[in-house]
Amino acid sequence: MQYVDLDARVGDLSGVLDPARYLSHLPSISGRLPPGARAFATDTDHYDFRSRRCVKDLTLRAVRGAGGAEMEVEFQHNCWKHDRDLLIRYTGVSGLVADPADGDRGAGLGPVILDEILPHGDGCSHEIACWDGTLTIVCRDLRATWTETTCSGKS
C-alpha cells in the first residue's frame, strides 16, 4: 500500500489500521480515477470502520475470469459487521497479482484488512490487503455492488 498504513502507531499501541493519509490524498487523485473506481473509493462508508459498507473484515469468496479482460471478485460479508456481500466487476483488466503472505498459492487470502485504489496508466489499480496476502488488479474501471445476503448468526 502506498498511502494506507496497515501498521500505524497510536501512542504505545502499534499495528493500528490507518487510512488517514490515503483519505487526505484522495481528493487530489479522485479526478484521475475512472468513474466507477472514483465512486467506490470516495464513498464515505468505505473506510468508516463502524459502517456496514466498510470493506474491512469481508472475506474473498470467489475470483471469476482471472486472466481475462473482464473479471469479478466476490467478497462474503461478516455477519457481525456487514448485512451485504460485495461484488466488484473489473473491466479492461491488464494486470492481476495474487500474493499470498506464506507463498502458498493454494491457500486463501483470508479476511480483508483494507484496500487502496490509485490512478494508473491503464485506468486504476486496486490493491486489496488481506490477513494472508494481497490481491492487486489493474483495470480500465471497476464497479462495486453491495448485494443482499442472509446472516444466520444475527438476530
Rank of each mutant, 00 (worst) to 15 (best):
D132M: 04
G121R: 05
L58G: 12
V138E: 14
T42V: 03
E127D: 12
D141Y: 03
R38S: 13
Y22C: 12
D99A: 12
R32A: 13
S30Q: 12
H77T: 10
S28L: 14
E74N: 05
Q2F: 08
G92N: 08
L114P: 00
V73K: 09
G15R: 06
G95N: 07
C54G: 12
M1K: 07
D132T: 05
C139M: 03
A62H: 06
C79S: 13
T59P: 00
F75C: 00
T42R: 13
W80A: 15
L142W: 02
A107F: 10
L26T: 02
G36E: 00
L135R: 10
W146E: 10
D85F: 03
G103N: 01
S152A: 07
R89G: 01
V63E: 01
G67S: 04
D83F: 03
W131N: 14
S155I: 03
D132C: 11
R84D: 00
R84N: 02
G15H: 04
S28F: 12
I117S: 06
E74G: 04
T147E: 11
G133A: 11
G123H: 00
D141R: 07
G67M: 06
T150I: 04
W80R: 13
R61F: 04
D5H: 14
R50N: 14
T134Y: 11
V138I: 13
R38V: 02
A101W: 08
G108W: 12
T150M: 08
G95C: 06
A41L: 01
K81R: 13
M1P: 01
C130T: 12
R140Y: 03
G92F: 01
V93I: 08
L87N: 13
S30P: 07
R52G: 06
S30V: 12
R52N: 07
A98T: 13
T136K: 11
D141W: 01
R9F: 07
F40R: 06
H82L: 00
H126W: 09
S51L: 02
D85C: 02
D83S: 03
A39M: 00
V138T: 15
L17I: 12
C130N: 13
D83Q: 05
L114E: 06
V16W: 14
L26E: 05
L6G: 15
A37C: 04
E127V: 15
G68E: 08
L26G: 04
D132K: 09
S155Y: 04
G68N: 11
C139H: 02
Y47R: 09
T145P: 12
D5T: 15
S94L: 01
H120P: 08
E72R: 15
D115I: 01
G36N: 00
T136Q: 04
D85W: 06
P27D: 09
D104A: 10
D57F: 05
G31C: 12
